[in-house]
Amino acid sequence: MLDISSFGFATDTEASEWLIKEIGVAGVAGSSFFREPVHNFIRFHFAKSEGILRAAGEKLQALRAK
């Protein structure tokens, strides 16, 4: 799970939707894994081929520029 507190999103759901639309990488809102009201984590799943993981990593690198 990745702590997204410093990215400025109101919720993890908002951040997840933005990542899909703007970056092209899907992450699951961490709040779906907690009983408590936690909204600052996104979960990534890495059971993909090496090529897909590399492509996702390159797309996530674009976050540094934003």
Rank of each mutant, 00 (worst) to 15 (best):
L2Y: 14
L2S: 01
I4Q: 00
I4R: 02
I4H: 08
I4P: 02
F7R: 06
F7L: 15
F7T: 06
G8F: 15
G8P: 10
G8H: 10
G8Y: 13
F9T: 05
A10I: 10
A10H: 08
A10N: 05
T11I: 12
T11F: 14
T13W: 11
T13Q: 12
E14I: 02
E14F: 04
A15Y: 12
S16L: 14
E17S: 05
E17P: 00
E17K: 02
W18Q: 01
L19E: 02
L19H: 01
L19K: 07
L19Q: 03
I20E: 12
I20H: 08
I20P: 02
K21G: 00
K21I: 10
E22C: 08
E22T: 03
E22D: 15
E22K: 09
I23C: 10
I23R: 03
I23A: 00
G24L: 11
G24I: 09
V25G: 04
V25W: 07
V25K: 01
A26R: 07
G27I: 04
G27M: 15
G27L: 12
A29F: 06
G30T: 09
G30L: 03
S31F: 08
S31R: 14
S32N: 09
F33R: 07
F34A: 03
R35P: 07
R35K: 15
E36M: 09
E36H: 12
E36I: 13
E36D: 11
E36R: 15
P37G: 09
P37T: 09
N40D: 15
F41I: 03
I42A: 00
R43N: 07
R43Y: 08
F44G: 01
F44H: 01
F44D: 02
H45C: 05
H45Q: 06
H45G: 05
F46W: 04
F46D: 01
F46S: 01
F46V: 00
F46T: 07
A47K: 08
E50H: 07
E50I: 10
I52Y: 08
I52F: 10
I52L: 12
L53I: 01
L53N: 06
L53S: 03
L53Y: 10
R54V: 09
R54K: 13
A55K: 03
A56G: 02
A56W: 12
A56K: 03
G57I: 11
G57N: 04
E58S: 10
E58D: 08
K59D: 06
K59S: 05
L60E: 01
L60G: 00
A62T: 02
A62H: 04
R64H: 10
A65V: 15
K66F: 13
